Amino acid sequence: MIAFDTWQAIVTLLAKAGNTVDAGRLDDWLDCFAEHATYHVLSRENYERKLPLTLFQCDNKNMMRDRVLSLREANVVNIHRDQHVTGLPEITDRGDGSFDVTSAYAVYQTDQGGFSRLFSAGVYYDNVSVADGRAAFNARRAVVDTFAIQNMLSTPI
């Protein structure tokens, strides 16, 4: 059984990851990741077949920082607002100070005209470390069921 304070730190991390993107606070989103962390978005089909092709891939936090800078400076298309909905996590203690965390998600986007639609749905497969009451992603994989993305994949899922 996982200690309540560990569970709480992990659930807080999951909420912060979605809420910071939704609020446009991408520097705070970066704070959700350990310095050595990875972030990948891949289709369910490629995940199940163990194929390496991703829709989006950052192999370290510096790549994530570059992506945030690009979103601020260069990508001024597809102006929208995101809303993440994340299910309760299943948490497994790996026994090495990290935890495997699985949770379903849905991301809705609302355009400038106020029209909302489902943008992406799938599952997060995360590896999380908890130290001093604070959780951080070591690895985040968003496995998307809706990989036929209608608009540019710009903001993090």
Rank of each mutant, 00 (worst) to 15 (best):
A15V: 10
D27E: 15
F33K: 00
G18M: 05
H80M: 13
A142N: 11
Q112Y: 03
D28S: 04
V128W: 03
L26E: 01
A23Q: 14
R117G: 09
I10M: 02
V68F: 13
R67V: 03
L88P: 12
F4S: 10
V128M: 00
D5E: 13
W7Y: 13
Y124P: 00
T38K: 15
L71R: 12
M1Y: 01
V144Q: 06
F137G: 00
N46Q: 06
V107A: 08
E45S: 14
G95H: 07
E73A: 09
T110S: 09
I10K: 00
A142V: 08
L26V: 02
W29E: 01
R67W: 08
N46M: 06
P52T: 14
L42I: 06
T86Q: 11
A121N: 08
L69P: 00
D59I: 05
T102H: 08
D93C: 08
E35W: 05
A37E: 09
Y125H: 14
I91G: 00
Q112E: 13
P89C: 12
T12L: 08
M63A: 11
D22M: 09
T102K: 13
F115M: 06
D28H: 07
A74C: 15
A136L: 15
V41G: 01
L53S: 08
A9H: 01
V143D: 12
R65L: 12
H40Y: 10
F4E: 12
G95V: 11
D132F: 06
D31Q: 15
D132E: 10
A121I: 08
A9W: 02
Q83G: 04
R134L: 15
P52Q: 07
D126Y: 13
V68I: 15
G133P: 03
Q83I: 09
T86I: 15
R134K: 14
Y47E: 04
R25C: 04
M1R: 09
D93P: 03
N46G: 03
T38I: 03
V107P: 01
A131D: 09
D28F: 07
L51D: 06
D100F: 05
V144T: 13
V41P: 02
T86L: 14
T102Y: 13
H36N: 09
V101N: 01
V123E: 13
G113H: 14
V21H: 05
I91A: 05
F4K: 14
S70I: 04
I79M: 14
G87L: 05
L42Y: 05
G122H: 07
R117P: 02
A139V: 01
M64S: 04
Q83E: 04
T102C: 10
A34W: 09
R49Q: 07
T6G: 05
N19H: 10
L71C: 11
A34L: 15
